[in-house]
Amino acid sequence: MTTPATERRHPQTQGLQALPGAAVLSLALDSQIAALSAVRPALPALERAALAAAQALSSGGKLAYVGAGSSGLMALADCLELSGTFGIAPDRTPMLFAGGATALLHMTGAVEDDLSLAGADFSRANLGAGDVALCISASGSTPYTLAVARLCKAAGTVVIGLAHAPGTPLLDLADIPVCLETGPEIVAGSTRLGAATAQKAALNLISVLVGLRLGHVHDGFMVNLVADNAKLVDRAARIVAALSGQPVARAHEALAATSGAVKPAVLVAAGAAPAKAQSLLTDSGGHLGPALEQLK
């Protein structure tokens, strides 16, 4: 069996334990930077992945995240942010993590091999045609992740596979394969290091483009955020003020008139009645730019 690249010894780590701390940290940082550079060649695949995910969500489908171990943690981090950043309802972005919540407090390797867990989690997520599953596995062969991916394929769910070597089972079965060739880790096999850094960056790129294509980002502002704490209420008011060109006090009034919804509040602050603001957004498919143009 060929040893996965992430399991091989890094060529610069012989005698690593004897190096001064500063030298170890410098090598570790260089490996992180090198891992990030592996994301750039994958940009076309990442764009395809993001557009497929945006299409599913805009059509009423789901974007599921699937993973185990360190890869699952990276998937979970991105999945949980979609609600707060883009206002996407959590039930539209299910997370399938090997071992569930218990494994988040005490990660065990056995759950990665448990195909019955994969089947139960897949059934619970209720995925089918019109949905997308973003399946992540550093080795591209994690049994849990592969099992979910295969069930998704059988159900007509589009599978995005993200792994770190070409020709791996996950990339072979994926509808949209994303290969991040990060190579050996400075601690062989510890994919929480370079591989995870590349995964985090790649997932960030996918979700940002998804948010943009859904109309939830305008001029760099998160215009579909759910303002459920003091910090976000203040952020929402600043966004409304910036995009409408009105004072923050007027922004707060507009947000009160729209029950805290940022997009219609921008239009209200710019001069539209609340009902008209909602009508403009309906006509534009939820995209703020065309709605603002109609007010000019």
Rank of each mutant, 00 (worst) to 15 (best):
A5E: 11
R9P: 15
H10C: 08
T13E: 10
L19R: 14
L19T: 01
A23H: 10
A28P: 01
L29F: 10
D30N: 09
I33W: 02
A34P: 01
S37Y: 00
V39T: 08
L43T: 13
A45W: 04
E47P: 00
E47V: 15
R48M: 08
R48L: 13
A49G: 15
A50G: 11
A50D: 06
S59N: 11
K62T: 11
V66G: 05
G67L: 03
S70R: 03
S71M: 04
S71N: 03
L76K: 14
L76H: 07
D78N: 07
S83A: 14
G87I: 09
P90G: 02
M95R: 08
G99Y: 11
A103D: 15
A103N: 15
A103Q: 13
L104F: 07
L104D: 13
H106P: 00
T108A: 15
G109P: 02
D114S: 08
S123T: 15
N126K: 14
N126I: 04
G128M: 12
G130K: 05
A133Y: 07
L134S: 02
C135M: 04
S139I: 07
S141H: 03
L146C: 06
L146G: 03
A147V: 00
V148E: 02
V148H: 00
R150Y: 00
R150D: 06
L151W: 00
C152W: 02
G156T: 06
V159F: 05
G161I: 10
G167I: 03
T168M: 05
T168Y: 01
D172P: 03
A174I: 10
C179F: 06
T182E: 05
G183C: 03
A188P: 12
G189S: 01
T191N: 01
T191V: 13
T191L: 02
L193W: 13
A195V: 13
T197N: 06
T197M: 04
Q199K: 00
N204Y: 00
S207T: 13
S207N: 07
G215R: 02
G215T: 08
G215H: 07
H216R: 14
H216T: 04
H218R: 02
D219S: 14
M222H: 03
N229P: 10
A230E: 15
K231T: 14
L232N: 11
L232C: 10
A236I: 09
V240W: 13
V240I: 13
V240T: 12
S244H: 09
A249H: 12
R250E: 13
A251P: 14
G260V: 05
A261D: 15
A265Q: 09
V266C: 12
V268M: 06
V268R: 00
A269H: 06
A270G: 11
A275M: 07
L281A: 06
D283G: 13
P290I: 03
A291F: 08
L292D: 08
